[in-house]
Amino acid sequence: MWKWLHPYAKPERSYQLASTLLPWFAISSIVLLVIGAVWGLAFAPAELYQKEYYRIIYIHVPSATLSMSVYMAMATAVLISMVWQLKLADAAAAAMAPIGATLTATALITGAIWGAPSWGTSWVWDARLTSYLILLFLYLGVIALHNAFEDKALASRAAGILTLVGVVNIPIIKYSVEWWNTLHQTATISKLSAPSMSSEMLWPLLTNILAFALMIGALTLIRFKNEVLARNAMRPWVRELAAKVGDK
């Protein structure tokens, strides 16, 4: 059943596959991003309680939801590399860490900007915010560990262990922070969780989530290709590619 997968365990084949997939991801994500942004910014109706600044939702929600998914994808890649000794999964995990960190930072920054007019403050030590801040630290730790080792394979194994420890900790952190919040009785934010969105608002949001997901895919492919090149620098096919660039 898995036979068709086997050729892709070869770095060269997956590099080529990534190269063929990349334009599709890149073009569709750019198109959807433009559609989603214009739809959300200009055509979606105004929200009942919040003023026009609610339009930040169209970038805040996609980056927030997907930043967590990227972590899970990264952890899955690490697990695959550990269980099946598939070195390419390491390259994928290494490719994803900076993307996840950027998305988490984006979610935090847009949240802070949104918070300023709607809550009257940019930052509250609320459960969601705090756990996303910790998620950002986890990402930064993984990236730092990747950069700390000279040897890429070694770096991946070290960062992989940290990633898996982080997976165990993410639910713990989430619940601890939620508990902590209820105990301290900080401001409750019920305005944000509107009971149900109108479909006119929901569609641009879903478009943007899909656009962000495709963009993450494209970025992962670009970075994955880089990682594969860096990890296979001694192979003839990489040397050939390098020679072409060097001639120019």
Binding site: S63, I99, T106, T110, I222, L229, A230, A242, A243, V245
Partner: peptide, 30 residues
Amino acid sequence: WAYGITFTLLFTLTVVSVRRKKSLLKEIAK
């Protein structure tokens, strides 16, 4: 501000990632 920062960050990440390939290949060629 929110849209500007988001797209600047994502654009920077993209540019850095794309450029990295060239510099990597140059390093390997060298």
